[in-house]
Amino acid sequence: MELSHDYQRVYVWEQPVRWFHWINAASVVALGVTGWLIAHPPAFMTAQEASFGYWFGTVRFVHFLFGYIFAANFAFRVYWSLVGNKFANWRNFFPMTAAQIRQIWAVLKVDVFQSSNKAVHTLGHNSMAYFTYAGTGFLTVFQIVSGFALYAPTSESWFPQLFTWIVPLCGGEFTLRIFHYAILWAFVIFTTIHVYLTFYHDYVEGHGVISSIVGGWKFMEKHQAEAEQATGISAFPELKEKTPAAQPTTTAKAKTKPHPAG
């Protein structure tokens, strides 16, 4: 009994990862709303002269502004996947080991189809989630490249010009525009599932998934945390040696302290 209540508090999401998440969330919302407006401008019947209004220009400006924020933020996250803690490491995002692939199947069985009740406990994301974020990362790269390529003709800056190579690849700007717009829907659908699943995991597993993206800490019963480390889904052997995060108070990055029994 004593053992089963021995919660461990593990610092999972470092501050840069949390900042990335929320800046990214804000950018996706801003880009989604303005992108939708650009594709479907509402009808304002007005007698005003064109030269006195600029609301549509402003909507486009906000879209371009957040495009830059979105891109810079993503570039930072890519950098952090090289220097951040093991939960942020880029290796997690690609199912390269047998353990990761096994876990993807396990997650599909346990959480999605619920044909098994054997819970999958992971401290970072589970492999399925990491893999999904590799997908959204790919979409993000496409949106950044196509977005700047579409923005290039209206910009004097050198930066957007770096991306114009994608235009002939997609068969012209018009087709590129359709793809750039259609992926807005992919983000809408991703966000729906993403938000639902965080609620689901928090509700079912009680690891504090939702609060972890605010404060960075997750809670897990000690034996589960140890099991997680043993399976090493988010801990690759060489990384594990560098930062043995499972052991409390060994490094600043992996601060853990026992949580008072609940």
């Binding site: 209540h5 509700y203 079912v204 009680g206």
Partner: peptide, 25 residues
């Protein structure tokens, strides 16, 4: 479906939750 299938895991109190999880483990 989750509320039906994962009734045991969700449990009412933290103690029950933990015990069940322990048992499962």
């Amino acid at each position: 479906l989750t509320n039906v299938r994962k009734r045991d895991e969700i449990g009412e109190g933290p103690g029950e939750n933990a015990e069940k999880a322990e048992a499962t483990k």
